[in-house]
């Protein structure tokens, strides 16, 4: 019978140390990974960014990744959005009793690989096991710290009229992938998650532009939600050119079947970047060299008019408001 996680693995005794030893230490080991109560870190002076995020995704594995990869990318990308090079991460697991051990291995392996790619070290962890049905598979919370690049100041309130609005690739892929992976609507499409660590991309953008105003990770709620957040925080309007928003044809097809808007589907490897017009071309050129950002595109500009609003220029050249994001995404048929 396949080995599974049991309540004993969470009880703190021998089996707990076995689990930590065989799964987590095996994948996360590095000189800083602590066996004590807390990791001890040497940090150079300067500004730090710190972020935490919980990851629950059903199903926990999907085309293009799993919850482990997601948990590293999410926190790495949150730090990157502040112009911070991710340095250290901690992770806390809540595992459902009966969870297959080999799947837990795969999740840990994905975390190891993604962390290595992002140049971040996992320095501490925690494991709890919850009774059957108390959690759905495995929940992971990661917390990270990173060092902010000298002279860099990004934030949602820093968009200025005239700035260019860039997305780093086609939108809505992760949300669409999860929707398909749940197999509730009988739709099949060759779509995989955009889930990716983006510090490398941000690093190249910071090198290419003299002044980056906003970097936002378009996760839950998608690019549309992020644009509204920025418009509100910066008290500016944002005008986007609807036909310029990159969308994978299959994502468009799925959205067409279900009556959904790709701009509101989650991404896990897409940034909205706002820079002065004069930096636009250099940033775009840098992004198009990147592994995960080849599909970067300018989708619009920041305006002084319509503060707090996102306006779209539509395919017939008329202007209309992008609807405000709201509530649960429900497929619309009639």
């Amino acid at each position: 019978m396949a080995k599974t996680v049991t309540l004993a693995h969470g009880a703190g005794g021998k089996q707990t140390s076995e689990l930590i030893h065989e799964v987590f230490e095996a994948h996360f080991k590095n000189p800083l990974f602590t066996a004590d109560d807390a990791a001890v870190l040497d940090i150079e002076p300067g500004k730090l960014a710190m972020s935490t995020d919980g990851f629950i995704v059903s199903p926990y594995e999907f085309p293009g990744g799993n919850v482990g990869k997601l948990s590293i990318c999410g926190t790495v990308n949150d730090l990157a959005c502040m112009g911070a090079q991710p340095l250290y991460l901690t992770c806390a697991f809540v595992i459902e009793e009966g969870f297959p051990m080999d799947k837990l291995e795969e999740i840990a392996a994905a975390m190891e690989k993604t962390a290595a790619e992002a140049g971040v070290r996992i320095v501490a962890g925690d494991t709890k096991v919850a009774g059957k049905g108390q959690v759905d598979g495995v929940f992971i919370t990661t917390t990270g710290i990173g060092r902010i690049r000298e002279g860099v100041k990004t934030g949602g309130a820093l968009a200025r009229p005239g700035d260019a609005v860039i997305v780093t690739g086609d939108v809505g892929r992760h949300g669409c992938t999860i929707l398909l992976a749940r197999n509730e609507y009988g739709i099949v499409a060759d779509v995989d998650s955009d889930c990716a660590p983006l510090w490398g991309a941000v690093d190249s953008v910071l090198a290419a532009a003299s002044d980056v105003h906003v970097i936002r990770d378009a996760t839950r709620g998608g690019v549309g939600t992020v644009l509204y957040e920025i418009a509100e925080q910066s008290t500016v309007g944002i005008r986007i050119d609807a036909p310029a928003v990159p969308v994978d044809p299959a994502v468009k097809g799925v959205c067409g079947m279900l009556g959904l808007e790709p701009l509101y589907l989650a991404c896990e490897g897409r940034l909205v970047i706002i820079v002065p017009q004069e930096d636009k071309d250099a940033v775009l050129a840098a992004l198009r060299q990147g592994k995960y950002t080849k599909g970067a595109a300018v989708i619009g500009e920041v305006t002084a008019e319509n503060p707090g609003k996102v306006v779209m220029t539509t395919e017939i050249g008329a202007e209309t408001l992008l609807p405000q994001p709201g509530g649960e995404l429900l497929p619309r048929i009639c």
Partner: peptide, 18 residues
Amino acid sequence: VSDEGTCAAWYAYKRDVI
């Protein structure tokens, strides 16, 4: 309620600008 509903469409696209 429905995205198709007149009020939802007005709220989404037409509330006070444009």
